[in-house]
Computed example of a mutant assay.
Amino acid sequence: MTSIRNRRLVALSLALTVALAACKGGEAPPQGGPGQVTVVTLKAEPVTLTRELVGRATGYQVAEVRPQVSGIVAKRLFTEGALVTQGQPLYQLDDAAYRAQANSARAQLARAEASATAARLAARRSAELVKVKAISMQDDENAQAAWKQAEADVGAARAALDAANVTLGYARITAPIAGRIGKSSVTQGALVSAGQAEPLATIHQLDPIYIDVTQSSAELLQLRRELDAGRLQGNGEQPVDILLEDGTPFAHKGTLEFSEVSVDPGTGSYGLRVRVDNPGQVLMPGMFVRAVVGSGVRQDGLLVPMQGIARDARGNTSAMVVDGEGKVALRQVAVSRTVGDKWLVEDGLAAGDKVIVEGLQKIGPGMPVQATEKGAEAATPAAPAAKQ
């Protein structure tokens, strides 16, 4: 017991000795220097505001092939899925009956022409005889009227022949437009009728092609308010970027053709149509794509890298900046949308502000820092900003 007590007394005396030495001759450890941070100096620049809208591709021209006369399909003259030209024959119907009608009309025309020739000769003879009073005036007038009636019969017969030829021509069904034709809904031997509801085939013109997208009417109102206030300028004829279903950009840019003049009451949106060149026919009708449509240009826009903006649990956004004294200052900011990898600032920051984008974990408001401009070759202190 005595040895244990002695060891405790020795340890206590050593601890007291160290404490007295620290109080008398010790000094506090030196404080670290200014924190190292990386900043981005904001500058006003023109910013094109865009909106990514989901749309669907539709054919530039779409034609449903339907028969204009009834008959039996004698032959299909095209390959399904192939490109066809305007006027190219697609189906041949059995035209025996229509050909017979055309031949009958042709014969009626020949008979009318023969009758007209005889009436013309008779009228000429009558005109000579009436001069010498060999026949009466009544007989001459009848002869002249018969000639005119025969000429009218020729015109009627010629019109009947033209109609028969048109009907005969309808027995060969041709492509109304150029484009890619789909599958045929009928085969050889099928009976088709004039004006039937089901098309024989459908042709889509795919180059160029349309992209139909929709946009919220609320966004349209906001855009008009910004334009009226002068904060935004129209984008003019800015091309439209197209993104495919897998996110890859399409090789050709589109052009905004028109926008609807009314809003869909069910969805609260209105339609936009974009025209896109599609030489390789990558875009097909019914395909979902995304169109990046420009809504305007903000001439004095401020863009801040995303890592320079913090958001709290309530959704409020803030940024750390280096003030004119080289110290950290907290700014409450308002951002509206992303432009690439940056935020578009609406309020809270101004051109010339140095926003901290790296080293945020080691600093706090009021701390002195040594700032380096992002992308600079050497770490040099940033010049103090001019005081307002």
Score class of each variant (00 low, 15 high):
M1Q: 09
N6C: 03
R7W: 13
R7D: 04
L16D: 02
T17S: 14
G35S: 13
V40R: 06
V47R: 06
R51C: 03
L53T: 01
L53F: 00
G55D: 01
R56S: 11
Y60L: 02
Q68W: 10
S70A: 14
I72N: 08
R76M: 11
A82S: 13
L83N: 07
Q88I: 03
D94F: 02
D94K: 05
Y98C: 00
Y98E: 14
A100W: 03
Q101M: 12
A102M: 11
N103G: 04
A105F: 03
E113Q: 15
A119L: 05
A119P: 02
L121E: 00
M137Q: 11
M137S: 13
N142H: 08
A145I: 08
V154L: 05
A157R: 07
A157K: 10
L161V: 00
L161R: 14
L161I: 03
A164W: 04
A164M: 01
V166D: 05
L168H: 07
R172C: 07
T174G: 02
A175T: 05
R180Y: 09
I181T: 05
G182S: 04
T187I: 08
G189E: 09
G195S: 11
E198I: 12
P199R: 10
P199F: 10
L200Y: 07
L200H: 06
A201K: 06
I203T: 02
D212S: 06
S217F: 10
L221W: 06
L223V: 09
E226P: 01
Q233R: 14
D246W: 13
G247Y: 08
G247Q: 06
A251R: 12
G254T: 04
T255Y: 09
L256F: 11
F258L: 13
F258K: 12
S262M: 11
P279G: 12
V282A: 13
L283I: 14
M284K: 15
M284F: 08
G286E: 06
R290Q: 15
S295W: 09
V297C: 03
G301D: 06
Q307N: 15
I309H: 07
A313F: 07
N316R: 14
S318G: 01
A319G: 05
V322L: 07
V322H: 01
L344M: 12
V345P: 03
G352W: 13
D353V: 06
V355A: 12
Q361F: 13
T372C: 14
G375W: 10
G375I: 08
A376N: 10
A379K: 11
A382L: 15
A386E: 15
